[in-house]
C-alpha cells in the first residue's frame, strides 16, 4: 500500500489514466458495437487490435525504412508518415474484423444456432490469428521506431503534458465523437440502431442485414485499429499476445459503461483507465488487473446494467 504516491502525483496519475482510458474507449467500441447488433461478445476483437499494432509498425519499418536507431522526424514528413501508419492500422483492423465476421459468424447466424457456438468459433478465429502472428514473428516482440519527438508541450502545476498523450486524448475524443455522430445521424447509423433493436423488424423494413452487420464490424475494426496506432505511439512495442490483456480491459470497460451503449463505452473506458493507474500506484502494478475486476464486480452488484446503462439507454447502438 502506498498512498503517498497518490497524494503526491495525483494529477499526473489522473492524466496517465485518462490517456490509457481513451485507448480503451476506442477498443471497447469494437466490442460494444458488435454486441449492440449481434448480442455476442466478439472474442476476436483483441486479435483485431493486435493486427492493427503490427500493421502500424510494419508500415513505418518496412515501407519507410525506419529502424530502432532512427532519429525522430519533423514537419510534413512526420505528418504523412504517421498518417500512413494510422491508415494502415485502421484498414488492416477493419478488414480483419470484416473477415472475422465472414468466417466465424455469418454461416452460424444463417443457421440460427445457439450463441455459444458463435462464441467458440470466434475463439477459434482468435486463436488462429494470434498463433499466426506468433509463428510469423517467432514469438519476438516488435519495437516501434520513435518517429515523434516526445517533448512536453506545456505544464500545469507539476503535471507535464507530453505530445503523444495529447495526441491520444484529442484524436481518440475526435474519433469517438465522429462515430457517435455517425451512428446517430446517418442512414447507415440508423440502420445499425434498428438492427440492434430488432433484427426481424429491421429486415422487414428492407434493411440488408448482412451489409449492416459487416459495416458494424468494419467500423468497430477501424476504431480498434486507431487504438492500435495510438498504443504504438505511446508504448512503442507490440507482441503477438498483446491483445489479450488490452482486449480484456477494453471489454471490462464496455461492460462497466453498459455494454451495447456507445457513450457508456466512453465513460467506462476512461473510468477504467483511471482506476487501473491508481490501483497500480497504490497496490503495485501486479495487482492492477485484480483491482479492475473487483471494481467491475462491485459495479455490477449495485448497477447490473453498467454505470451508464440506464441513464442513456436511447443512445444504445
Amino acid at each position: 500500500m502506498n498512498f503517498s504516491a497518490v497524494t503526491g502525483q495525483f494529477w499526473s496519475l489522473l492524466l496517465a489514466g485518462v490517456a490509457i482510458g481513451f485507448i480503451y474507449v476506442l477498443i471497447s467500441l469494437g466490442y460494444t458495437m458488435v454486441y449492440g447488433v449481434l448480442r455476442l461478445i466478439n472474442f476476436a476483437n483483441s486479435e483485431i487490435f493486435m493486427v492493427g499494432t503490427f500493421a502500424s509498425i510494419i508500415v513505418s519499418r518496412t515501407f519507410f525504412g525506419y529502424g530502432d536507431s532512427s532519429d525522430t522526424i519533423h514537419g510534413f514528413k512526420l505528418y504523412y508518415t504517421l498518417a500512413a501508419c494510422l491508415v494502415a492500422a485502421m484498414l488492416m483492423s477493419g478488414v480483419t474484423a470484416v473477415l472475422v465476421e465472414l468466417v466465424a459468424y455469418r454461416r452460424l447466424r444463417a443457421k440460427g444456432t445457439n450463441r455459444l457456438a458463435s462464441l467458440i468459433s470466434a475463439i477459434g478465429t482468435s486463436i488462429v490469428l494470434s498463433e499466426g502472428a506468433r509463428i510469423l514473428t517467432q514469438s519476438r516482440p516488435l519495437a516501434s521506431p520513435r518517429l515523434l519527438n516526445k517533448f512536453f508541450v506545456f505544464n500545469i502545476g507539476t503535471v507535464g503534458f507530453r505530445i503523444d498523450i495529447i495526441i491520444v486524448i484529442v484524436f481518440a475524443a475526435a474519433l469517438f465523437f465522429a462515430v457517435d455522430r455517425f451512428v446517430n445521424k446517418t442512414l447507415l447509423g440508423k440502420a445499425i440502431r434498428a438492427v440492434s433493436m430488432s433484427e426481424d423488424t429491421s429486415r422487414l423494413m428492407g434493411i440488408n442485414l448482412n451489409r449492416v452487420i459487416s459495416a458494424t464490424f468494419f467500423i468497430g475494426g477501424l476504431m480498434t485499429g486507431a487504438a492500435a496506432f495510438l498504443y504504438d505511439l505511446v508504448f512503442e512495442n507490440t507482441r503477438f499476445n498483446i491483445g489479450f490483456n488490452l482486449g480484456l480491459a477494453a471489454f471490462t470497460a464496455a461492460v462497466l459503461g453498459g455494454i451495447g451503449n456507445l457513450r457508456g463505452a466512453f465513460f467506462g473506458g476512461i473510468t477504467l483507465g483511471i482506476i487501473e493507474v491508481f490501483a497500480a500506484a497504490i497496490f503495485g502494478a501486479q495487482w492492477q488487473a485484480v483491482t479492475v475486476f473487483v471494481v467491475l464486480v462491485l459495479v455490477l452488484l449495485f448497477k447490473p446494467n453498467g454505470l451508464f446503462g440506464e441513464a442513456i439507454q436511447q443512445s444504445r447502438v
Partner: peptide
C-alpha cells in the same frame, strides 16, 4: 509450431459444420 493454429482452425470449421 503450427499446432495451436491447427487447433483453432479445427474449432472454427467444426463449429461451422456442426454448430450443435
Amino acid at each position: 509450431t503450427a499446432r495451436q493454429l491447427v487447433f483453432g482452425l479445427a474449432l472454427v470449421i467444426i463449429m461451422n459444420v456442426r454448430p450443435d
